[in-house]
């Protein structure tokens, strides 16, 4: 496969991969590193990508697995403290998107969800994937996807209602 052809397939996925990586890793810079790393992996295994009829699902699965591995190794190697410092730095400078009041609150709630539910919610409500596509990316069956999605949405709703009521009683 030539470089042009490869870029033609993979480049449009760049932002999707980034959003997924950021949803999992939370940090903006780490998400970008992850995307870079996944691109390298895809390029090295570019012969494999042809075998998959949907390169997008393949790339998304790879990103998901890579980010989850990163999280695991970070927890294992005690780097979480560094990461927290990093995060607070990050929110001040980088992500002004998150600064918006109510929306920022949902960003915070999202961070509390278990990774799997977070990913599924991201894929469905942000990327608007079909259940079958999500099942392919998550390597799970559709029923499990629906159950997890419902749980994630309800969790977000609960937290929102909690915060909403808190705001009302406080005023």
């Amino acid at each position: 496969m030539q470089k042009e052809e490869f870029l033609h397939i993979v480049m449009p996925l760049k932002d999707k991969l980034y959003r997924l990586a950021k949803r999992i890793l939370i940090s903006h810079d780490e998400a970008e590193d992850a995307v870079q790393e996944v691109f390298l992996k895809l390029w090295n295994g570019k012969e494999l990508i042809k075998k998959y009829n949907k390169p997008e699902a393949y790339a998304m699965t790879m990103t998901k697995n890579y980010c989850l591995d990163r999280l695991k190794s970070k927890q294992a190697s005690n780097l979480t403290i560094v990461h927290q410092n990093y995060k607070s730095n990050n929110s001040r400078t980088e992500d002004q998107v998150e600064a918006k009041d109510g929306v920022g609150m949902v960003f915070e709630i999202m961070k509390q969800l278990p990774e799997q539910q977070r990913i599924i919610l991201q894929l469905r409500d942000v990327e608007e994937y079909e259940y079958s596509e999500i099942a392919a990316v998550m390597e799970m069956n559709e029923t499990a996807i629906r159950v997890n999605l419902s749980r994630a949405r309800k969790m977000v709703r609960e937290e929102l209602i909690k915060k909403y009521n808190y705001g009302l009683t406080k005023n």
């Binding site: 980034y18 959003r19 870079q36 609150m105």
Partner: peptide, 25 residues
């Protein structure tokens, strides 16, 4: 209550990375 939730999805959808991954290396 749900407005924020859907506003979040819309915002999250528009997130983009400015970095172009390099593969030449």
């Amino acid at each position: 209550v749900y407005q924020d939730m859907f506003a979040f999805f819309a915002t999250a959808k528009s997130e983009k990375t400015s970095v172009t991954p390099k593969i030449s290396e």
